[in-house]
Amino acid sequence: MDIYIDKTEEENFKKLDEILETHGHDQGHLITILRDAQEVFGYLPEKVQSYLSLKLDIPISTVNGVVSFYSLFSQEKKGRFTIGVCLGTACYVKGAKDVLNAIKEELGLDSGETTLDHLFTLKDTRCIGACGLAPVVMINDDVHGKVTPSDIPSLLHQYIKKSKEEQDD
């Protein structure tokens, strides 16, 4: 009995098969495979975890145990952009809390939540090693340093614009 894959999901699951192939269906590569799978799907839904459990012959309880253990993995659909506000010591004393609050207010979100339009996911993070730029906000792979609360609206606007442009293309 195979897991049902919808037409709209076929492409992603094909990529998942390729990932499994690259890793030789090796149980020992579970974490790397999960990471690559998250790249493809954006998160790790039940179906993806079950599919990997089936193909790697690892009990689903174990797979889910690993996924739920590491904060690297998300089981919920994340936004197009993940905003990470560093709350490490240096950023914290430089006012990161105020920056975080400004974003919360602007987006109407709490930490760990995603906007309804799946554009932004807000997270607070531990030190990301860019203390010289404190306080630091990461949006996907972009690092923004010396952020103040008043920068927030324009900063977010850049990404809203970026997303619109993507859609128009």
Binding site: E46, Q49, P59, I60, S61, T62, V63, N64, G65, S68, F69, Y70, S71, Q75
Partner: peptide, 26 residues
């Protein structure tokens, strides 16, 4: 049967079926 696993981490850890589902669902 491998029903149970530690799910989540630290204080949030529970010994539970995958996705903390009820036993009837797994």
């Amino acid at each position: 049967c491998h029903v149970y696993s530690p799910i989540n981490r630290g204080l949030d850890t529970v010994i539970a079926p995958a996705f903390k589902k009820d036993l009837i669902e797994v």
